[in-house]
Design a protein around this nucleic acid. Sequence first.
DNA 1: TTACACTTTAGAATGATTATAAAGTAAGAC
DNA 2: GTCTTACTTTATAATCATTCTAAAGTGTAA
Lengths: 144, 144
Amino acid sequence: MNPIKQHTDKLRISGLRPTKQRLAICKILFDRKETFHFTIDTLKKIVEKSNFQKISTATLYNTVHAFEKKGYLKQISLKGNKTYFDTNTKKHHHFFDEDLSQLTDIKNENICVKNLPQMPSGKKIKEIDITIRIANNNQKQKSN
Amino acid sequence: MNPIKQHTDKLRISGLRPTKQRLAICKILFDRKETFHFTIDTLKKIVEKSNFQKISTATLYNTVHAFEKKGYLKQISLKGNKTYFDTNTKKHHHFFDEDLSQLTDIKNENICVKNLPQMPSGKKIKEIDITIRIANNNQKQKSN
DNA sequence: TTACACTTTAGAATGATTATAAAGTAAGAC
DNA sequence: GTCTTACTTTATAATCATTCTAAAGTGTAA
Ligand SMILES: [Mn+2]
Ligand SMILES: [Mn+2]
Ligand SMILES: [Zn+2]
Ligand SMILES: [Zn+2]
């Protein structure tokens, strides 16, 4: 019931020790109703604003990558310099609001891809990433 | 007819001076039948292998960004640290071969997206990016 | 030929991310 | 509870992609 206990268990089951840094990060990432899309920088700012002690940048990277490896986070395909992570690890897609640089989930069943061309033999589909870039009406529109 | 002349004209029309560096880069990028997907690093290596004089990194970046701004190249949405560019500026999508880190075009009409959910009001679709990640059969498969 | 805006360039600066290696800590054994 | 050890955290340095700077070079129109 207690979320701290839940996180502790989850970490232990994964072979990760439930350190206070990891628990603080779990709380930030997973104790929320909605999907959370973030960069390391976003996360660092949230930690700083919280009353928790400082967490070093190295630990933020280590922890996020450890969680990714265990399947609790996934990386998002986006152009741009920084890496975005996603607490929603189910198959799904995204709106990317170019005005706000903000991601929103699109449920997998709310999009339907048809007519896939054949692919190189011996290769199998691992993942399909769809990003729908949106912006205010009054902006330059892609032609073609 | 002469491709050098074509590139010279194209550059001049765009308000870009046809310098020898730009023409050498045009030749590498645009004198080919197939779409070319590349990073600055790829391009640098090709220039180095060619018999052309060295082109500075700053010029490679400047030129590629100038061509992008003029609409002769576009950037590709991908996760990862480096920026990929594409000589195919038409609307289209990609296979990404995870074994080879290699992109292949999928024609826009060969893929069909249905059932788009409604999006935030006042916002308009600027672009849809679809990446189909493929790899050899014998690899970890995404579940869900 | 001249003048000048546009370009190229080496090198410094920035920003994200990763590596290093020393100090701190969780957890099982006793 | 104490010990032991492997796992973690951390400051800091290192790396890598990209951008900035400002000085030297070049295309072009007059
Ligand atoms: Mn990772
Ligand atoms: Mn650009
Ligand atoms: Zn998401
Ligand atoms: Zn392409």
